[in-house]
C-alpha cells in the first residue's frame, strides 16, 4: 500500500493545527466585518451624499462599487503594507512561537521529523493562511457590492467578468504578505517568544517601517528612492498593477513623494526578502538546542 511521504503528512498535520485554531477564524471574521462596514459606509455615502459631490467623483465612487472594479478594490484591503500585514504578523507569531511554549516542537522533532521539513511544512501552510486573508475582503466585498450591482443594474456581469485577472490579483495580494510572514516567522524562531514575535513584528509593520519611509521621503529625492525598497512600498508597487482607480484602497500613510519601483522589480525583491528571512530562520533552527 502506498502512503503519502512523511513530509506530505507533516504538511497535513500543520494544516490541521492551523485550521483548528480559533485565532485564524477570529481574524478572518473580524477582517470580514471590517470590510463589510467599510463597504456599507461607502455605499451609504454614495447613495445619500453623491449629489453634494462633483459629478466626476460621484461617478467614480459609483463605479468603484460596481463589479468588476469593486472586486479589485476589495482585494487591495488585504495588501501587505496595510491591514493584511498586521493580521499575518499576529497569526504567524502565534502559530510558530506558541509551539515552543506548548513544548510541541519537542513532540514533533523527537519523533524523527526533520527540522527543515518541519519549517517547510509550516511555511507551506502559512501560504494557505495568506491566501485566506487575501480572499476574505474579496468574498465579503464581493457579496456586498454584488448585491449593489444587481440592485443597480438588474443583473450581474458573470460572463464578462475578468475572473482570470481577479484570481491573478488575489495571488499578487497574497504575495505582498509574504515578507511580513517571513519576518514574523524569523522572529518567532529566533526569540521562541510569542510576545516578541508579535510585538516586534507589529512594531515594525505599523510603526518603524512607516517612520523610516516618511523620514527618507522627507530628506531628499535620493533618500526617497531608498524608501521604495521597503516591503510596504514594494507592496504598493504591486498594488498599482491591480488598478489605478482603487477608491477603497487602504494607504499606510506612505508619502506620495517616495518612489515606487517597477512592479516586476518589486515582486523580485519581495521574493528575495522572503527567501533571505526563511534561510536565516532555517539556519537558526538547525542550530537550536530544543531543551525542556
Amino acid at each position: 500500500m502506498n502512503h503519502p511521504s512523511l513530509f506530505a503528512r507533516m504538511v497535513d498535520i500543520e494544516r490541521r493545527k492551523l485550521f483548528g485554531r480559533a485565532l485564524l477564524w477570529t481574524e478572518l471574521v473580524l477582517f470580514g466585518a471590517l470590510v463589510a462596514i467599510l463597504h456599507l459606509v461607502i455605499l451609504y455615502v454614495s447613495r445619500n451624499h453623491s449629489g453634494q459631490m462633483p459629478t466626476e467623483m460621484a461617478q467614480r465612487l459609483t463605479q468603484a462599487l460596481h463589479w468588476p472594479q469593486a472586486l479589485i478594490n476589495a482585494l487591495q484591503l488585504a495588501n501587505g503594507g496595510g491591514l493584511g500585514g498586521m493580521l499575518v504578523v499576529v497569526l504567524v507569531g502565534a502559530f510558530v512561537a506558541q509551539e515552543y511554549r506548548w513544548r510541541t516542537v519537542q513532540l514533533w522533532l523527537s519523533r524523527g521529523a526533520a527540522r527543515p521539513h518541519f519549517l517547510l511544512a509550516k511555511s507551506m501552510v502559512i501560504l494557505i493562511a495568506l491566501a485566506l486573508i487575501a480572499l476574505t475582503p474579496l468574498l465579503v466585498g464581493g457579496v456586498i457590492t454584488g448585491v449593489f450591482t444587481y440592485l443597480d443594474q438588474g443583473t450581474l456581469p458573470w460572463l464578462t467578468m475578468p475572473w482570470g485577472t481577479i484570481f491573478f490579483d488575489l495571488l499578487k495580494v497574497a504575495y505582498t504578505l509574504m515578507p511580513y510572514a517571513a519576518l514574523t516567522f524569523f522572529l518567532a524562531v529566533a526569540s521562541r517568544s510569542t510576545m516578541v514575535a508579535i510585538g516586534v513584528g507589529l512594531g515594525y509593520s505599523l510603526l518603524l517601517e512607516n517612520i523610516f519611509i516618511q523620514l527618507l521621503s522627507a530628506v531628499s529625492q535620493g533618500a526617497a528612492r531608498i524608501a521604495g525598497y521597503f516591503p510596504a512600498m514594494l507592496a504598493q508597487s504591486i498594488m498599482q498593477t491591480l488598478n489605478a482607480d482603487a477608491e477603497l484602497s487602504v494607504d499606510v500613510g506612505v508619502s506620495a513623494q517616495a518612489h515606487l519601483l517597477a512592479p516586476s522589480l518589486a515582486a523580485l525583491l519581495i521574493g528575495l526578502y522572503t527567501v533571505i528571512l526563511l534561510a536565516a530562520t532555517l539556519w537558526i533552527f538547525l542550530r537550536q538546542d530544543i531543551s525542556g
Partner: peptide, 12 residues
Amino acid sequence: ALVSTPGFVPYL
C-alpha cells in the same frame, strides 16, 4: 518518548 511534562496542542 515522554520528556518531563509532555507538550500537546492545548486547543485540541
